[in-house]
Design a protein around this nucleic acid. Structure first.
Lengths: 204, 204
DNA sequence: TAACCTACCAAACACTTGTTAGGGAAGGGA
DNA sequence: TCCCTTCCCTAACAAGTGTTTGGTAGGTTA
């Protein structure tokens, strides 16, 4: 069941589609989805607005494809980590590291997700955002609870507050992260983990 | 030099303006600025779109007033903390606590700021967002550096990474925080500070 | 009562938006 | 050579946008 162009007898090349999706993602991330006109995307791609519709059904389907592609890859990595049977602390470390790798690979998509997912989730078309968010919470919160039970994480904190704390600290990084910067994703993950796990204060 | 309606011989009541600003802020925060139509705001306020222009010059000036009012109050609180001459750790604690109080009071404005400030800052009208951001960085980064020098904060971390870490952890809370929830702003600040300063891992 | 002010409505305006329909240039295969 | 496919352009459409203009109900003041 093809997702797009199933009613037209045209076959756009996947490579060109990929390029256009990348430029669209950049513009969406920079300006916001609603503030981005399809004319602006076309301009950035060196073509006219109408020509985009040779490759895509609608502006919304472009956004859809950007987000779903990102989430597919994200969960591919996450599921691998979760299936590895690591301890709570090691699982958190692996998830955080994997997250920064995804931010590195899908910076624009992550930024879009951060800004738009909340109100997009209300639409039926983007229902998978809600599912993903629930799966996400289950994975992280479950790991944290396991850690508290195993006495590797503190038990004097509100666990849901801790979850949001860890989750947000990781993902907002997409708002300032730039690939090819001073630190590699792994190095950023290492320092973030060090802060989250041990704090920024000097131990006395 | 009055900011609005200086060319019209009408004098809208400040009280009604405040109400309209509050409802507009809620809609902006929920839907995003660009996705929000002035008809939607008017609808929420129980009037027609054109009637908004009795109170405000434009849609943009509504946004402007929401953000600048928030930032004015924020810096009122921050400046007080910074002028108190506290130590680095106590300054960070006070800033974080003050931040959560501002989130409590200006939840909608903070959410709007988070989503829109980046691309708004490019416009001349919103240049004060850039100024505020610079002042913000100077205050937080400076305090962290003081703390490292005084050996109350760790010196083995990238200080700019630490800054973004602390900054983001605090302000993204506006995306999920709801006034009247389970925890008071002060309690949330206390737990956040505990996590940021001492980490979530059990000390061995 | 008359004049006035506040706060809104009704109706339209110019413009931008996403989207569509038809056409054409370039190139490859028969 | 002719045809076909790929990829884009030209030109328009209808809907929705922020905004303006003129009017008016209801209360307050003189």
């Amino acid at each position: 069941m093809p997702k797009q162009n199933d009613s037209k007898n045209v076959t756009p090349s996947p490579a060109r589609r990929g390029e256009l999706l990348a430029t669209a993602a950049e513009v969406f991330a920079a300006q916001g989805y609603n503030a981005t006109t399809v004319r602006k995307i076309a301009d950035e791609a060196g073509m006219l607005a109408g020509s985009l519709y040779y490759h895509f059904d609608s502006k919304e389907s472009i956004l859809d494809e950007i987000l779903s592609t990102f989430l597919d890859e994200l969960w591919q990595g996450y599921d691998e980590v979760l299936a590895a049977g690591l301890g709570p602390r090691e699982t958190i470390e692996a998830l955080v590291t994997e997250s920064f790798r995804e931010i590195d690979r899908h910076r624009a998509a992550v930024a879009i997700y951060q800004k738009e997912s909340r109100h997009l989730a209300k639409q039926e078309r983007f229902a998978y955002l809600v599912e993903s968010q629930q799966k996400f919470e289950k994975a992280w919160l479950g790991t944290l609870e396991r850690g508290v039970a195993a006495q590797v994480f503190r038990s004097d904190l509100d666990i849901r507050l801790t979850y949001r704390f860890v989750r947000d600290t990781v993902w907002v990084a997409a708002s300032w992260y730039r690939p090819g910067g001073q630190h590699s994703p792994e190095e950023i993950a290492r320092q973030y983990l060090s802060m989250v796990l041990d704090g920024i204060a000097v131990r006395t």
